[in-house]
Amino acid sequence: MNCLLSAEKISVRYGSLAALTDVDLCVHDGQRHAVIGPNGAGKTTLLNVLGATTRPQRGTVRFAGRDVSRLGPAARARRGINRTHQRPAVFATLTTIENIEVAALPRTIRRRRWWPGGTRGTARRLAAGLLDQLGLSDLATVPAGHLAHGQRRQVEIAMALAGRPRLLLLDEPAAGLSATEVDRLAELLAALPREVAVLLVEHHLDLVYALCDTVTVLRDGRTLAAGTPDEIRTSPLVRQAYADGMS
């Protein structure tokens, strides 16, 4: 089996707290892979390790056949790993469309146009298209700092997509979104080209089951179970974990 992304024996400790212990993960090309688990299970920590903002004490991360463990966040993004954050991160003083343009630039700059204005047109068209898909076109010229929480979340998703990722890491993209917004998000994710693999961290299980073909369950920093949505849905172990986690 060759994985697009593979994480092997990832361990992260914060002082005496083991946030992740020997976690393995494999995401195939084009796969829709969910990571679920109760609060504090280590889901965000895992995404941070994959995005290189947290350095694990142990373990390796491979992407597209290469060991990327030593690469920083920017280098991994340029290889095709793009992400969103649980707490949406946007550029507050830039307008919504500028946010997405900036996120698109590393890909458009590559086309060897060195004059700084040259690539902006491409990036702007890409950004406008994404805003349209998310139904946010009206907000194009609003500074992102003025947006509501749910809107920022969607803008950050657009930013991650603007980087044309091979692997998209989403940390609770549906949190704080209205029902209509969740529907639109589900549509957008379902419509992603098949070449894009998605690693989705989400509490919104309907979205997970509708979208994903594989589910990994974390609990207390360890992999509790992994399987198809049907297997996970019916697993007594998982039900138990959620019941404990939520109480």
Partner: peptide, 24 residues
Amino acid sequence: TRVGPLLRAGRDDEMRLRASGHRV
């Protein structure tokens, strides 16, 4: 040009800019 938004983006949130693949 794109220089303005890029510099201001780095001021607003440097980690986000890195996460998009920019060499800050």
